[in-house]
Every structure is written in structure tokens, then in C-alpha cells.
Deep mutational scan, measured.
Amino acid sequence: KTYTFRVRIVDEETGEEKEIEVTAKSEEEAKKAAEELKKKYPNLKVELE
């Protein structure tokens, strides 16, 4: 079973919002993916929905 999570990304500089879908095998995995995004884009606000 896989879970699909919507991750909302807000670029703090431009105020631009993007939504991406993360497919993960567990909620834990999705959280890790969101953390990776935060590391990659430090000025983005990442929200897991």
C-alpha cells in the first residue's frame, strides 16, 4: 500500500505557492521526504497535508 501526500511549498521570497505530490510507503517516509525538501530549499515553507 502506498500513501500519496500533498506537500504545499511556499517560496518565502516570491510568495509563490506550489503543490507537489509525494508518494510514500508510510507517513514516516513522507515526513522524511518533506524534511529533505526543507534541506534542499531552505527558504521554502514546506507543509505536509
Rank of each mutant, 00 (worst) to 15 (best):
T2H: 09
L48R: 04
K40C: 10
E29C: 11
P42R: 04
V22F: 15
T4K: 12
T2G: 07
T2E: 12
E19M: 15
I20P: 00
R8I: 12
K45V: 10
T23L: 12
A24Y: 12
L48T: 06
K18A: 08
K31A: 09
T4D: 02
K38C: 10
E16C: 13
K45E: 04
D11P: 00
E19P: 01
E17F: 14
K45Q: 08
I9F: 11
A33F: 15
K45M: 08
E49T: 13
Y3N: 02
K45H: 08
S26Q: 01
P42K: 06
A24M: 05
T14P: 00
I20H: 02
L44D: 03
A33N: 04
E13L: 13
E28H: 09
E36Q: 10
E12Y: 09
L44R: 06
E29P: 00
L44H: 14
K18E: 08
E12C: 14
A34N: 02
E49W: 05
E12S: 09
N43R: 06
Y3K: 05
A34H: 07
E35L: 12
L48I: 12
E21T: 13
A24G: 08
A30C: 08
K1D: 10
K18R: 14
S26A: 01
E27R: 13
V7E: 00
E13P: 01
E12P: 15
E27W: 15
L37Y: 09
E49F: 06
E16V: 08
T4L: 10
G15Y: 02
P42G: 05
E13M: 11
D11N: 13
K31G: 05
T14E: 01
F5C: 04
Y41C: 05
F5S: 00
E35I: 09
E28D: 08
N43L: 08
E17H: 08
E29D: 11
K39L: 11
T4A: 05
E17T: 13
K38T: 07
R6A: 04
V46E: 03
Y41W: 09
A34C: 14
V22Y: 07
E16G: 03
G15V: 00
E21P: 03
K45C: 06
Y41R: 03
V22G: 02
R8D: 00
E12W: 08
T23M: 12
K39T: 06
E19G: 03
E47W: 14
G15C: 05
E29G: 05
V10L: 10
N43Q: 07
K25M: 12
E36M: 13
L44G: 05
N43D: 06
T4H: 07
T2M: 14
L48A: 06
R8W: 15
L44N: 04
V7A: 03
T4I: 13
L48Q: 05
N43V: 04
L37K: 01
A30S: 02
E19Y: 15
G15E: 01
E35K: 06
F5D: 00
T14C: 04
K18Y: 15
L44M: 13
K38S: 10
R8Q: 04
T14G: 02
K39N: 07
A30K: 01
T14N: 04
E21F: 15
A33K: 14
A30G: 04
A33G: 04
E17C: 14
E27K: 09
L44F: 13
K32A: 13
K25S: 14
I9C: 07
A34F: 15
E47K: 07
N43A: 06
E28C: 10
A30R: 02
V22I: 15
E36A: 11
